[in-house]
Design a protein around this nucleic acid. Structure first.
Lengths: 154, 154
DNA sequence: CTGACCGGTCAAAGATATTGACCTATCGAC
DNA sequence: GTCGATAGGTCAATATCTTTGACCGGTCAG
């Protein structure tokens, strides 16, 4: 049994994550919408930008989706000349993906809104809080939870 | 133009949010899957639990979805006796939603995994980092970003 | 009585994701 | 050179989710 006031804190945290994440994705989503694109397109642009010359397989592992789910949006982005494929590497089976200048522009536009939002929150909260936020998020993003207690133990 | 090392920090933050949120929802999603339910069902259970006797309209505003999108999962939950409808309030147009004991159990199971995950991250990081995390998230969840600069200014 | 509101439903449409099967090209090892 | 494994792609069927639009009944307040 968990301390009730601790529970209250944890539930506030859950809600902050829910509403925070929704706010966080809202603006990019609306920019994408104007071009008929979705959140996956942003993710592709983002991670190709962050990992230049990444392979399709590498992207699949980062995004954790099926290759069929990646294939369509990725093709759209290459057709729109936002993502380019580098030829002639050592292993010719592997495609190396990069952003085109135009792709970089859109990515900067999309991610820029998120960086500004984060930046505003960090500045308002101060450096210590920013550092604390990062440390907590690092745990949150990496923590594997132990196999949950056999149904209904709560 | 943003300081490059600042950019790097902000991009790290973006990735932490992306991967962190995905980790965060993973376990509840798999519990729900076993019952043929989805994330919306969890959200309904969560917010009905947090706001006992909430109206359908209130729930719609919290979740920010169309009433058609709410209607099906909500009906499923009431049919499964996880959510109950309180009758006879002052305004008889309004339904008051509450969790049944069984609904409370499932909600506790789902949210419990998230509370344990958060709790583990908070404990590992320490009280100061926890407080900092909360303050940053509060800004993040509430900050309205100024209208974005006219396309391509990035 | 009437307009506004709460709740619900049907229908059409589109987007998103999945699994499964199958294909080519290439690589590395034998 | 053959062969198994890998990278990438595609078609198809299926399922889910969500949206907009149009309506409905019941209820409330003036």
């Amino acid at each position: 049994m968990v301390d009730p006031s601790r529970q209250e804190t944890l539930r506030r945290a859950i809600e902050l994550l829910f509403f925070g994440y929704r706010e966080f994705t809202d603006r990019p989503d609306r920019i994408l919408e104007r071009r008929g694109l979705g959140r996956v397109h942003h993710r592709i642009l983002y991670f190709v930008g962050r990992n230049p010359a990444v392979s399709v397989k590498g992207l699949l592992e980062i995004l954790a989706v099926s290759k069929q789910a990646l294939s369509v949006p990725l093709r759209q982005l290459t057709e729109m000349k936002l993502v380019a494929v580098l030829a002639g590497t050592s292993d010719r089976r592997v495609k190396r993906l990069v952003l085109t200048p135009e792709g970089r522009r859109l990515e900067a536009d999309l991610t820029g809104t998120q960086m500004r939002r984060l930046s505003a929150a960090f500045e308002a909260a101060g450096d210590d809080d920013e550092a604390g936020w990062m440390r907590v998020m690092e745990r949150l993003a990496r923590t594997e939870l132990q196999p949950s207690s056999p149904a209904g133990a709560a």
